[in-house]
Each structure stands twice: as C-alpha cells, then as structure tokens.
Amino acid sequence: MTLLLQLILNGIVNAAIYSLLAVGFGLVYRSLRFFYIAFGAVYIVASYAVFALANMAGLPLLVSIILGLLIGAISGVVMDKSVYLPLEKRSASTGVLFIASLGIYILVVNLVALFFGNEVKILSMGIEPSFSIGTLVVTRMQVVQFFVGWIVVIGFWFIIRKNNLMKGIWAMGETPDLVVVLGLPYKFMRMLVFALSSVFAGIASLLTALDVGIDPHVGMHALLTGAVAVLVGGVDVYRGWIGGAVLLAVLQSIAVWQFSARWNDLITFGILIITLLFRPQGLFSPKRRREER
C-alpha cells in the first residue's frame, strides 16, 4: 500500500512535468495545426544551454536558467522564422511541415550531440536531500518540480482565459484567416506561440535535467509524452491537455506498480491508439471534432 501511495505521489509530480510538455506541444499543435516534432529539439536546447553556462562557463545557476530559457525561446522562434513560416507562405501541406520539422529535430539533436557528446550530462552535483511524510519519501527536487510545474501550468490557464491576445491565439487554430481579417498581429502571435512553447519545453526539460541529467536523445520522448497527453486529453480544450498529462502520469505509475517501468511505452501508446479510435476528440473534450473530409 505504501508503495502504491508512493508511486501515486511520484505520478502527481510527474504529472506536473507532463503538463508542461503538453502545454508546450499543444500551443503549437492547436494554433498552427501541424505535428511539431522539433519540439523535442527545443526541449534539449534549454538544458544544454544551462549546462554550458553553469557547468562550463561557471555562471550562477539562476542566471544560467534564465538565459537558458531565453536561448530556448529564441531557438524556437528562429526555427519558425527560418523554416515553418517560409514554408507556410508557400502554402505547404501539413505533411511537408511535419517532414521539415522532423528534419530540424534530427539536425539539432545531432548538432548538440556533436558539441556535447552523446552521453548523459549531469547538471547538478551532490545528493538530493529528501524529506519523509509518514512512510512516503519526497526529494527536494520533486518538491521543486511539483510546485514550479503546477504554478506555471495553472497560472498560464488563468492568463489564457483573461488575456485577449491569448484568446486570439486560441482562435487562430480554428480559423487562421480570421486572425488576419480582424487585424490581429499574426506574425507576433506566431512568434509568441513558439516562444511560449519553447519556454514550457525548457522548464520541463530543466526540471528533469536538474534531477537526472540530460542526453541529446531524450527530446523525442518528451515530445511524444506531450503529444500523447494533448491527443488523449483533447486538442481543443486546455483542461484536456492537463487531464491527459495527469492521466498518463498516474497510469504509468500504476503500471510500474503492477508490472514494471519497462512497459510504460506500451501503456502510453496503447492509451493513445484506443482514445483516437473510440473518442477521437479526446477524453476531456465535450464536442465532437468537425467531420474532416
């Protein structure tokens, strides 16, 4: 029983990180409607930037983190400006965008690997202090992950509901032409989407990397986690993204309890396929997706 509670606790902490990933991926997927594989590349950029600044250049950690997130955001925007936006101007199909995005992912990951090596890099030294609540054990890092993750995700939820620009970004996913007609700053909104998405990826990445380190190839898994959470929860509702992330994290914890962590991917993608088959609009989305033909 203790084990189960401990695993559920871990699940809730993981859910915070998964939510960050879901929001990061969902922002681009929802507003620009293409499968943003390069999200996995942006994910590692922030952590490696922090690694370079803090561990190699010797800057204070907090400064490095801020700069790292900034670099991540810039990299996301640069990708858009250099590849997606020009392709979109040629009215490229989603397939073309998907493949170009895949190309960016492969390029960036291997560029990073070329500079830093393919092996795991540890960002923080020393043993994490941990606390115990009754029979349960929590590390300091888990506490940080939990609070940072949930504060950012829930804070952003409020911003989305109140801020007009955010409402505009939300509308962009339904009727892209409307944005131009209404005279909303399309290019700026696009930039904002990529910058925000990168920051979410960066926060998730750092929270993980400070705990267990980072290697260039973890980006794919982060991307897939975010994407599955969004698709399972429902693309069209913010609460769906979060719901999907929580569901995924908790189910994975239960799976660890029942079987072993090795079968996690089976659970993740099994849920994805079953959801898409039987409830294509997502579990937390009330309305059916438009009939696409």
Partner: peptide
C-alpha cells in the same frame, strides 16, 4: 555518426523547400 544524421536532417529540410 552525428554528422551523417545532421546531413539527413538538413536534406529533409532543404528537400521540403
């Protein structure tokens, strides 16, 4: 190994353009 992968990635991007 990494350089090869980078070329693949770059090829895909250029191809789409």
């Amino acid at each position: 190994a990494n350089a090869r992968q980078m070329i693949y990635g770059l090829t895909l991007i250029l191809l789409m353009f």
